[in-house]
C-alpha cells in the first residue's frame, strides 16, 4: 500500500493542496464539526460520524487526521507524535501532510503547539488551557472485546451497564494477581461513560484527569468521535483491594536523567547494547538543553543513538 510519503513525493499533492484547505471539503468538515460539538456535550460518549477515505491507510490514524483537519485554522501550530516521538515515519508524514494541505506551522515543541495529534502518548509536559490534543484511535469501543455486537454495547452504554468490564478486569487479577492491562486501560469520564483511551499506555491515564486542554478522540475505521472537555473527572476503573496504579520505571532516562516519565527501551549498538530513554523525545531534548544528564549522555553524544522508530 502506498503511504502518504509516496504521495507527498508526487506532484499530485499540489493538486490536493489546491483542492481543499486541510484536504476535507467543507461539507465533510461541517458534519465532523457537529459531531465534535456533541462529543464535547456528552463527555466519553462515542458519536457516530460519516468517516471519509483519507489518502493514507487506516492504521495511520485517519480518524485523528479527520478531526485535526476539521478543527485546524491557518494560525494553528501543529505537533504530531507517534509513541512519544516527533521523528517517526507516521508522525513526520502526518505533519508533512498538514503542512501541504493546510500550510500550517508545525513544531515539535509541546509548549508551542496549539493542536497536538498523537497516536499513543500524552506529552510529559503539562498541557495548557486553550490547547487541543487529538488522539488517533484504532478501537473506540471499550466493551468490544467482551461483546462484539454493536447493538449490545450501545445498550450497555445507554443503561450504564458496565459489569462486564469489571468482570474482565477481575479476571486479570485472578490470572495475574494484578490488573495486567497496560494499554487502553478503561476510564470512566465525568462519572458516566466508560471510555477507551486506546492505545495510550495506562501510565498516561492520570494525565487525562482534570487536564486543562481539550481532548478529542477520532476513530476512522469505526467512524466514532469522542471527547473529554478540559477540567473533567477521568477515573481509571479499579477495585478497592486492587487500586489502579501506573507502571513505574525502576530507573531514570539514560539521556536526561528524568524520573517518573515513560521510558522506551532502545538498542544502542550492534552488540546488543540497550538503554532506557524518554519516550517523549521533545521533553528529553528540552531537559538535555537545560543541562540535565543521564548515565548514557556522553555515549549518546558520541553518536551511538540514532533516530528511533515506533515499535507498535
Amino acid at each position: 500500500m502506498s503511504t502518504i510519503l509516496d504521495l507527498l513525493d508526487r506532484p499530485a499533492i499540489d493538486d490536493l493542496a489546491r483542492y481543499n484547505f486541510a484536504y476535507l471539503d467543507e461539507q465533510t468538515k461541517r458534519m465532523i464539526r457537529r459531531a465534535i460539538l456533541k462529543a464535547i456535550a456528552v463527555p466519553g460518549y462515542q458519536v457516530p460520524f460519516g468517516s471519509r477515505e483519507m489518502p493514507m491507510p487506516y492504521g495511520w490514524g485517519t480518524g485523528g487526521v479527520q478531526v485535526t483537519a476539521s478543527i485546524l485554522g491557518a494560525d494553528d501550530v501543529l505537533k504530531v507524535i507517534d509513541q512519544g516521538a516527533d521523528d517517526t515515519t507516521n508522525a513526520v508524514s502526518i505533519r508533512k501532510f498538514f503542512q501541504h494541505v493546510a500550510g500550517v506551522k508545525t513544531t515539535t515543541s509541546t509548549e508551542e503547539a496549539t493542536v497536538i495529534q498523537t497516536r499513543h502518548r500524552i506529552p510529559e509536559r503539562a498541557l495548557k488551557a486553550g490547547q487541543t490534543i487529538v488522539f488517533q484511535v484504532p478501537i473506540p469501543e471499550p466493551l468490544r472485546f467482551l461483546e462484539p455486537r454493536e447493538t449490545e454495547t450501545r445498550a450497555m452504554h445507554a443503561l450504564e451497564e458496565y459489569g462486564l468490564m469489571h468482570v474482565k478486569l477481575y479476571e486479570d487479577i485472578a490470572r495475574h494477581g494484578h490488573i495486567a492491562t497496560t494499554y487502553a486501560y478503561p476510564v470512566k469520564v465525568a462519572g458516566r461513560y466508560v471510555m477507551d483511551p486506546s492505545p495510550t499506555p495506562k501510565f498516561d491515564n492520570p494525565k487525562m484527569h482534570m487536564n486543562p486542554a481539550l481532548q478529542l478522540y477520532g476513530a476512522g475505521r469505526e467512524a466514532r468521535i469522542y471527547a473529554i472537555p478540559p477540567y473533567t473527572e477521568v477515573v481509571s476503573l479499579d477495585f478497592e483491594d486492587h487500586p489502579f496504579a501506573v507502571n513505574r520505571f525502576d530507573r531514570p532516562c539514560a539521556l536526561c536523567g528524568a524520573e517518573n516519565v515513560y521510558l522506551d527501551e532502545v538498542v544502542t549498538d550492534d552488540a546488543g547494547g540497550r538503554m532506557f530513554v524518554c519516550s517523549d523525545t521533545d521533553n528529553c531534548e528540552d531537559r538535555r538543553a537545560e543541562g540535565y544528564v543521564g548515565e548514557q549522555t556522553e555515549a549518546a553524544e558520541s553518536g551511538l543513538s540514532g533516530p528511533r522508530e515506533a515499535r507498535s
Binding site: 467543507e26 478543527i71 485554522g73
Partner: peptide, 19 residues
C-alpha cells in the same frame, strides 16, 4: 471567505462548549 471564516467561527463554538 467561507473556509477560514467557518473555521474561526467553529473554533469559537467548540471552545464555548468546552469551556
Amino acid at each position: 471567505d467561507a473556509v477560514p471564516e467557518a473555521q474561526r467561527a467553529f473554533h469559537a463554538l467548540m471552545n464555548a462548549l468546552a469551556q
